[in-house]
Structure formats: structure tokens, C-alpha cells
Amino acid sequence: MATEFTLNGAAARFDGDPDTPLLWVLRDHLQLTGTKYGCGIAQCGACTVHLDGKNRRSCVTPIASVAGRSVTTIEGATGKTAEAVKAAWVAIDVPQCGFCQSGQVMSAIGLLAAKPNPTDADIDHGMAGNICRCATYVRIRQAIKDAAKHVETAA
């Protein structure tokens, strides 16, 4: 009873327990460890991936529910917005410990896809589900704005 889905643009399958959260399929079985475990109950956002292009907490997403759908992880985050977000992150040295940052970056890409020019309130709302215990929030906010500006100017 394998689950078949698209992962970072390529065909993928998982043969194990269909209840297994996508997070652990990615990390333990497919060796994509950029997606992180932080809480297991969709409270911290460290596990954020894109499911059919939208932000999704992989820790509470049973693999069975992903059948036939498209998953993008931090390893497969490409395109204009993704590149702009990653470049903005590095340019102002957002990460401290770094453990939450894959999830932050994925959430930011998802936010910009929906709101290309986010206001502070949009950022507060769009990033509310991502905890950073190092509290890099000041730089995350700035990097999102920098990325938005870059995408706009490049367009």
C-alpha cells in the first residue's frame, strides 16, 4: 500500500505505515533532513514544507494524505521568490542556531507567493506559526521585505 507523490519535482514513494507524518518520511526514509522536528504538534513551524505550493506543517501531515500531491522541501525550494528569500536571508545573516530556519524560509516563500508586498501585519500573520527560540525575528522581518523588494525590481 505504497503512497506515491511528487517530491521536489520527482516521483517519490513510501511503503511504510500510512499514518507516518510526512516529516518523518522525509527525514528518516528519504534523507531530506533540512526539514526539522521541533514540536510534533504544528506549534513551531520548523517542519514547514509546501504542499501543492502552500505552506504545510509536515509533522501533522500523514503521508497517506499526500498521495498524488506535490511536496516541496527546503532542498527543492527554487524559483525567483525562493532564490530571493534565501539570498536576503544570507545577506543580513538571519540565522543564529539555524535549526528553525528551513521552516522560516519555507514559510516566507509561501507568504510572498500569496502576498508579494507584505505589510508588517501580513508578516506578523504569515510568520505567526514559526517559532525562533534565538529570536531572530527582527532580521526575518527585514529579509522578507528585502526579498519582496528584490522580486519586484527584478520582475
Binding site: R27, T33, Y37, I74, K86, V90, D93, V94, G98, Q101
Partner: peptide, 18 residues
């Protein structure tokens, strides 16, 4: 610039859990 920002942005930094 910090030397570990890139690997901590693109998911390639390896932590013990990885």
C-alpha cells in the same frame, strides 16, 4: 558576514538530529 549563514538558510547544515 557569518560563515554559517548559507548552510543554515538552505537546509544543508547538519545537526545531530540529521
Amino acid at each position: 558576514p557569518k560563515l554559517d549563514s548559507l548552510v543554515k538558510t538552505n537546509g544543508s547544515a547538519q545537526f545531530t538530529m540529521d
